[in-house]
């Protein structure tokens, strides 16, 4: 795992192939919880956490359960169940152990199960770090890295968007564009700006 490979994954996941702005994964929370920066930051952290840990779980399940029994076609159904169970479990543990984190992240966790960015990143990891059903060199670490920074990219886009939308509240938007339509137009301009990072791929 060379330094250049690591750096290229980081830059690609956070900027060039940003999950929200260029791959359109996780748009529902992107529009739904981007009205206030504080809430957006909470959601961002929750997504990073769930993405990284569910990647670890799904990688292990795929490598040691699905491949040996030749059940690769059950990937989708297994992964969504693993993610849903995991999120439920985390919710229960947090509720029992740490009321502080519960207050900060509690309301976002149920939303994350149906966040397509989480399932998306686990499937993407399998697609990019397994060749013909065999893990590539350092596959597990690369998967973790990729999903962590995919989460960071998601959080970045969410927080930027919430900052813009907070200011937009004070502006005089045409009536028919208020709310979701103008949010799409802003997202489009942000996506255009992020396209400027395209030259970064190395």
């Amino acid at each position: 795992m060379s330094f250049a490979a690591v750096l290229s994954i980081i830059v690609s996941m956070v900027f060039v192939n940003n999950f929200v702005l260029s791959k359109f994964l996780g748009l529902c929370p992107f529009l739904g919880v981007s009205k206030q920066t504080k809430i957006a930051a909470g959601m961002g952290i929750a997504v990073i956490f769930v993405m990284t840990l569910s990647t670890a779980l799904t990688w292990l399940v795929y490598r040691f359960l699905l491949i040996p029994f030749n059940l690769m076609y059950l990937r989708t159904i297994t992964f969504i169940l693993v993610i849903a169970t995991f999120v439920q479990f985390v919710e229960m543990v947090i509720a029992k152990k740490s009321p502080l984190i519960q207050r900060a992240l509690g309301i976002y966790l149920p939303l994350i199960t149906t966040n397509c960015a989480v399932l998306g990143v686990t499937v993407l990891n399998i697609n990019s770090f397994f060749v013909n059903g065999r893990p590539v060199y350092a596959s597990f670490m690369l998967s973790l890295l990729q999903s962590f920074f995919a989460g960071v990219g998601f959080a970045l886009a969410l927080i930027l968007m919430s900052g813009i939308r907070e200011r937009l509240e004070l502006n005089n938007t045409p009536k028919s564009l208020r709310g979701i339509p103008v949010a799409f137009i802003i997202a489009s301009l942000m996506s255009l700006a992020f396209m400027g990072f395209k030259g970064f791929v190395f």
């Binding site: 702005l21 260029s22 791959k23 359109f24 564009l177 339509p181 103008v182 949010a183 799409f184 137009i185 997202a187 489009s188 301009l189 996506s191 255009l192 396209m195």
Partner: peptide, 10 residues
């Protein structure tokens, strides 16, 4: 990608 968001918004 920006075109998709723009189209849907408008």
């Amino acid at each position: 990608p920006p075109g998709a968001l723009l189209t849907l918004g408008f």
